[in-house]
């Protein structure tokens, strides 16, 4: 199962007819423990709206009388939690999750870019920049985040190359990348960083290619692995500093060959886009297509 597959178990803390109300501490402790262990929790009550029943499995917990506890039915189980601790409640939820095949709490931190389409100009810098195929385009050629789980945890680099400050990482430490309001000075600051060409004194892929090649050549002539690694690290320090890229991500960059392949694919995509927009231009009113500069390659 991939990191983004599956449905959570939904736990209902039931206090209606047939169940005694929970004690305040017991309810709050159970709620917090269930959420911390990856379970969705619903507290239904008169006068309020909660999510309707759906296809996800449901576990109803209540302080049921032994005789009145409802019988389990399809995808809905009922358990009595009278005098049970928060740990017991979580254990019951885990059992129900295993029985129903609901999703287990995953070790992944949901870290992926989110696009603010009020700001995005569809320039494709992010698509061109990301080496891990997180971005793609939809049928209308609109930029999209397509492979969330490919994103490298804690790496906000693509948000730093977006000229419009349109890429958010809600779990990032600082604004505006965390979703805080974008101020004029943010746009100005990011615009200075975005100039990918300026970043490494030339085009990004070219720089990465050359620097990796240099490191590899040095490695093959000197047979000195640590020097080659040091060189690679040194060359990428500027990139790391400017874009806030974690070390692990830099060290796991694809091989020179993979980067070259990706650059070739991006160029092919660009060529396709250009020829498509050319045929549209020929057919309809003139509409300028993106240039190599627009794509930063």
């Amino acid at each position: 199962m991939s990191k983004t597959d599956g449905t959570n178990l939904r736990v209902v803390l039931y206090e209606g007819p047939g169940s005694e109300p929970f004690d305040g501490d017991a309810r709050a402790d159970a709620l917090a423990a269930l959420l911390d262990n990856g379970f969705e929790v619903t507290r239904p009550a008169l006068g309020g709206e909660v999510a309707d029943a759906d296809d996800s499995p449901v576990l109803v917990l209540g302080r049921f009388d032994a005789e009145t506890a409802p019988a389990d039915r399809d995808r809905v189980a009922f358990r009595d939690v009278t005098d049970r601790s928060a740990d017991d409640v979580v254990a019951l939820a885990r059992d129900a999750r295993d029985e129903t095949g609901a999703r287990a709490l995953d070790a992944w931190k949901p870290w992926f870019p989110v696009i603010d389409y009020d700001r995005c100009t569809n320039c494709m810098q992010c698509l061109t920049f990301c080496l891990f195929d997180v971005y793609g385009v939809d049928a209308d050629k609109q930029i999209q985040v397509q492979n969330e789980s490919n994103c490298k945890t804690d790496c906000p680099a693509c948000s730093r190359v977006c000229p419009e400050v349109a890429i958010l990482f809600p779990k990032y430490k600082k604004g505006p990348i965390n979703g805080d309001v974008v101020r004029a000075e943010d746009v100005q600051r990011e615009a200075m960083k975005v100039d990918i060409s300026a970043l490494l004194g030339g085009d990004l892929y070219g720089s990465l290619r050359n620097r990796q090649r240099e490191a590899r050549e040095r490695f093959s002539t000197e047979r000195d692995e640590s020097r080659a690694l040091l060189e690679r690290k040194r060359c990428l320090t500027k990139l790391q500093k400017d874009l806030d890229i974690p070390n692990e991500v830099l060290m796991s960059l694809p091989s020179t060959e993979a980067i070259e392949e990706r650059a070739a694919r991006a160029k092919a995509k660009l060529a396709r886009r250009q020829s498509e927009s050319q045929s549209v231009k020929d057919r309809d009113a003139p509409a300028p297509g993106p240039t190599e500069d627009d794509w930063g390659i």
């Binding site: 597959d5 959420l35 379970f39 929790v41 619903t42 759906d54 949901p110």
Partner: peptide
Amino acid sequence: VAFDAVPDLCDMAARKDPA
């Protein structure tokens, strides 16, 4: 009052959770 509590909205968005 009635309410829904979810572990992590980011995770739900990544999964395109129907909820």
